[in-house]
């Protein structure tokens, strides 16, 4: 990768140019990441207009640990789901690192990564974490912060972080509800229904166990179906826009001969 071959370029190129270049790179990368259309339907207690600020999202998920959850008096029934988010963040970071420098790593270093990736338990030992620390940078604060900025600049990592942050917001709301509600009604803040439409046309539907026998089962399924049908159209528009733009950028880079051909 260019970034690794030329480490000095970061300091030399003006910030804006670097940001724009990174933006262009993410823009062309996003098309590679498209494998399927996935529509999730969730029934939630409350919709707070949740804001996504990458740095905050990273910090908040990084901080999740068993001690922290107990300290914040998070409802014990939610602990494992919170810890799972932290584990997913760790995995995403490992994948990011692997992609960046898989060719440079030796067998021992690779094993360290696969250790995280194959961990099937719900928790990762805090001592083993590879994530850069946003709060108390261990040895070199500037370096830790730069590491976080680099990973946040990665389009794929950022999208994964966003999804994790969405799930965390739902858990936070759920926790708040459990603390204030007099009666604990059925827990619904999960993905109730999920449909995945693969590029080859195959459709996979998954439904949560809670949905079966739910008093509004029919209605939720109808809403989900509606979401899937609309989702296809919505994404089509968005994708058209992206492809259109990327296409015109590529064709513009084509030879100057295009300049001559235009007239006719």
């Amino acid at each position: 990768m260019m970034k690794l071959k030329n480490p000095n370029s970061r300091g030399v190129t003006p910030l804006l140019t670097r940001k724009f270049d990174n933006f262009l790179k993410s823009l062309s990368d996003v098309l590679i990441d498209i494998t399927a259309l996935e529509v999730n339907t969730m029934v939630v207690e409350q919709i707070t207009a949740h804001k996504f600020i990458p740095w905050e999202a990273y910090r908040d998920i990084y901080l999740i640990s068993r001690e922290e959850l107990t300290r914040q008096e998070i409802d014990p029934s939610l602990h494992s789901r919170y810890l799972n988010l932290r584990k997913d963040l760790e995995m995403e970071y490992c994948l990011f690192l692997l992609e960046e420098r898989v060719s440079e790593l030796d067998a021992i270093a690779l094993k360290e990564y696969t250790g995280v990736l194959t961990n099937s338990g719900g928790e990762i030992d805090p001592a083993e974490t590879k994530l850069p620390n946003p709060l108390k940078p261990r040895t070199n604060p500037a370096k830790e912060i730069e590491k976080i900025q680099t990973v946040l600049d990665d389009g794929r990592f950022l999208r994964s972080l966003r999804k994790l942050s969405e799930l965390k917001a739902v858990l936070d709301n759920r926790d708040r509800f459990l603390k204030t509600a007099i009666t604990t009604s059925e827990p619904t803040d999960l993905i109730c229904a999920q449909s995945i439409i693969q590029l080859d046309g195959k459709i996979i539907n998954r439904y949560d166990r809670q949905l079966l026998g739910h008093e509004h089962q029919e209605l939720i399924l109808n809403i989900h179906k509606q979401g899937v049908a609309a989702g296809e159209k919505q994404w089509h528009g968005l994708l058209n826009f992206l492809v259109n733009l990327i296409e015109s950028l590529i064709s513009q880079r084509g030879s100057i001969s295009g300049v001559f051909n235009r007239r006719n």
């Binding site: 498209i34 399927a36 996935e38 509004h216 209605l219 989900h224 979401g227 968005l238 994708l239």
Partner: peptide, 28 residues
Amino acid sequence: ILRSVISLDGEIINQIRRDSLQDGTWCL
């Protein structure tokens, strides 16, 4: 009442408030 997050890589999250399910026709 409703919130949708659409990611460029094709993942969509649709959220709906639980209490709005009470009135099925209106909700749909």
